[in-house]
Design a binder for these strands. Structure first.
Lengths: 237, 237
DNA sequence: GCGTTTTTTCACCAGGTGATGAAAATGAAC
DNA sequence: GTTCATTTTCATCACCTGGTGAAAAAACGC
């Protein structure tokens, strides 16, 4: 039926792995198209044409269209989560109070550890990543199934962020941290997704693709926002 | 052809305006569906069924599907722009330096004047507005045509925001203000669009629909972010 | 070479798509 | 009640949709 799942069968041909290359080709094509036009804005035939394969091959490898989409979403999510988890762990470790000479953790430091991997990967990880971030930004703003999909793939690393921030600011309330995360992710995803809006809005002053400009501003923007919300809440209490 | 455009013709029936009610009914149905599933995720037949009218009637009133979408988008955009422009003008006027006893404008005050009308309308303007904001959030994050669409409908009021902020912080660079606006709009639209993500993420601590919680945090969050970015830029210069 | 398994292609289906043009219904003006 | 522009319905078109099953091709072990 679905086939192509168990590559470990008895006698066939396990080597060469031509099929794997094609699978990646299909995922790349689907990724670019889904990112630009959304799930419903793309047909399996378009994906097949873009990848240069037969339509049926997509179903052979991935099953239904939605499964293809999930495969696209999952492929880089794992890499992303791993990079972010490592980045945050490294930050925490580098500021371990046991370590002599290590400064204390800061809100901005934690946020940078959370966001910086995405910027770095988007800049250095190859062209597919830009499409991928645009895709995630769209899912993030999709009411019907976006929240559920984001949760499925990204909740753990967000919880790690919130818990780490809770260490840095123990007096902060969780509900404030979660709301601030909501603000952060809205800014971050829109900035990683290169919609071109800021280009025309600023009449050439800014460029969507200028992630260096994002890096120079987003960390301090979000950190200051977090601090302000936390301070306001504790002063009101 | 397109028909139904010129209602001023010779002899017909100008009164009663049953057709106008139906037009609004269709727009309401389309709005809700487009907001939930995106432009490509909705068929004209679904819209017709939801509105309780014949499919052909949609084409009779609005022409092509994309024109229907634009009509949905435009209907509330005008109201929104008017409300925001009035709100910001009122804020500026209330802090006119000529006025005796009026305090100076603040970054947070300007931002509040820019955002608050949306929160108020979403809370008091009727259920259609929540759908509309979800729709705008999706368009805002659509790479293919989102930037262009947003620009077409919302650029003027954003320029007004930036210019007003430039009055409050004359030393700020335009590129910093535009980037901060990008961050702001990402946070704002995601918070106005009720994706349900924060509900599950926070395990019940926060609710997407709790716009009062947004109001209590978003203004100070964004204002602190703006100030931090401006301060960092001018200290670096 | 042969047999077997996987990969790829081909032809096709049942149902849905946006859109249209002609006919029917409606409702005011006279 | 007739007239006539408008509004609403109906039947339909040409095309595209996701998906499938059988046949062909390729890749392997022997």
């Amino acid at each position: 039926m679905t086939a192509a799942k168990t590559r470990v069968s008895g006698r066939g041909r396990p080597s060469k792995a031509k099929g794997l290359d094609l699978k990646e080709t299909i995922l790349d094509a689907a990724e670019g198209l889904f990112a630009r036009h959304g799930f419903h804005g793309v047909t399996t035939r378009q994906v097949a044409a873009e990848a240069g394969v037969d339509t049926a091959l997509i179903h052979y490898y991935f099953g239904a269209k939605r499964e293809l989409f999930d495969a696209v979403f999952l492929r880089r999510a794992e890499i992303l989560n791993q990079a972010r988890e490592a980045s945050m762990n490294a930050y925490v470790k580098a500021h371990d109070p046991e370590t002599p000479g290590a400064g204390a953790m800061t809100v901005e430091g934690v946020i940078e550890a959370f966001i910086a991997p995405l910027l770095r990967i988007s800049q250095d990880g190859g062209p597919g990543w830009k499409s991928y971030f645009a895709l995630v930004a769209q899912v993030n703003n999709t009411p019907a199934w976006g929240g559920e999909t984001m949760a499925r793939f990204f909740d753990p690393v967000v919880h790690q962020l919130v818990e780490t921030l809770k260490i840095v600011r123990p007096q902060a309330e969780y509900r404030d941290l979660y709301w601030c995360y909501q603000f952060l992710t809205g800014s971050m995803m829109l900035s990683l997704s290169e919609t071109g809006r800021i280009d025309s809005l600023s009449e050439g002053e800014c460029h969507s693709s200028d992630l260096e400009a994002v890096r120079a501003r987003l960390f301090s923007y979000c950190a200051a926002g977090f601090e302000a919300v936390i301070a306001k809440a504790s002063s009101a209490a």
